[in-house]
Design a protein around this nucleic acid. Structure first.
Ligand code: MN
Ligand code: MN
Ligand code: MN
Ligand code: MN
Lengths: 221, 221
DNA sequence: TTACTAATTTAGGGGAGTCTAAAAAATAAA
DNA sequence: TTTATTTTTTAGACTCCCCTAAATTAGTAA
């Protein structure tokens, strides 16, 4: 297993995430946005990744991960999510504060370290944002999650993940007292602007916009 | 505070360590050995560090840290030793296994992270090798340590540090059952080869070579 | 003081990763 | 099916860090 640089790892992760969404080939521009660089730099890197057999790449045709690249990407995601869990569970960071730190820690290279960290944390299956932590061999725990926005009035479920990880969004959730693991019920929806009335646990119903509803994941109880 | 690169941080740390020993100016060759590179590369870097006001450097005259450089170096050492403590105390690594991992973790950038880690560990004053962990403002706890090799017959003290951090040496200590915190008594010394008979705790006296004795630190009881 | 040796620096160059500006290809619009 | 627009790739250049080989300086021995 040829060690990849930090930068390469970040690219691989980005490609993986884009492939998860779109399913299809991933575009140069989208990668550029995600890794915060310019399209020209992406093209440059794609060539190198192709040379290392980490991606399938043909000019103008988009890019996708090879099996090798996918394996590497999942491993980084595993490390990222385990470190996020550590930061929240052990060091008491809030869930909106851990991303940038984990973004660095994920590159620390030691198989043994991650195994022990995993054990220390009690083999968590989900990270603080509800995202599944892939196993050592790359398998994601598959909890059937749905977007809250698609659920009908009367639906009852558990808040179990988020689709957006920005500080702004997570902070907003904290403010309106929404956190992972709590029960949610769709009380009403307003067809005009697609906003919702939902009740969280046993408190008063609360109003959420469609922007929020589209980024909240739930599973049926 | 201008962020320094990983590489720069490693150089600063190396210079600091050399300065601790020799007191005087540090030589290009010694740095090269410590950061595992060539003299020409060191010269290159020294110029850059001088530009950034991290070292005092005049051609052929050796190099020393500025106040700014010293502060940066101590901060990295603090992080290194806190992470080593974490690895040993929380993840149950052995003291000879943690150096390379900490060598990477020390570069993770987050003041808050280190503060919380420090708290999580219970504000340790010494790392697993007995080296003092500098405080946030750069002060080292100063336990008066002596080299065991310099102690007279009859001396009684506590093993409290090591001068060498190689896997080979630390492992050897494990094998002959020497660890930090235990009592040691100098039973006899052999003038011919400067080897020692010492007793550890209340067990049978044990034989150690001068190489070992010179790398063991003790303080008087 | 002069000659030799060891340490250090310069000269010249390479790879990884980045950028801007310009060219080429793909896609959408007319 | 041309034309215009958007996306992607190339060209050329820059920074950081590394290297080898050659030149320079400092230190030591004759
Ligand atoms: Mn990262
Ligand atoms: Mn996460
Ligand atoms: Mn390091
Ligand atoms: Mn240590």
């Amino acid at each position: 297993m040829n060690k990849n640089s930090h930068t390469e790892e970040n690219y691989l992760k980005a490609i993986f995430k884009l492939q998860e969404k779109d399913r299809a080939e991933v575009s140069t521009n989208d990668i550029a946005k995600l890794v915060n660089t310019r399209a020209a730099s992406v093209t440059d890197m794609l060539k190198r990744l192709a040379d290392k057999n980490l991606v399938h790449y043909k000019k103008y045709q988009g890019v996708s991960l090879t099996d090798l690249g996918k394996k590497a990407a999942i491993n980084i995601i595993r490390k990222h999510r385990l470190w996020e869990s550590f930061l929240v569970d052990k060091l008491n960071f809030k869930w909106d504060e851990v991303h940038d730190i984990a973004e660095q820690m994920e590159h620390v290279e030691s198989e043994e370290l991650i195994n022990r960290l995993n054990e220390f944390l009690g083999f968590p299956e989900y990270d603080p944002h509800g995202d599944p932590i892939p196993s050592k061999n790359g398998v994601f725990a598959g909890k059937e999650m749905n977007v809250l926005h698609d659920m009908p009035v009367g639906f009852i479920g558990i808040i179990s993940g988020v689709n957006e990880h920005s500080q702004a969004f997570l902070n907003h959730l904290d403010k309106i007292n929404i956190k992972l693991g709590v029960q949610v019920k769709v009380e009403d929806r307003n067809d005009y602007d697609n906003s919702f009335w939902i009740s969280i646990g046993s408190t008063e119903p609360v109003f959420i916009s469609k922007e929020v509803a589209k980024n909240l994941l739930v599973f049926k109880k």
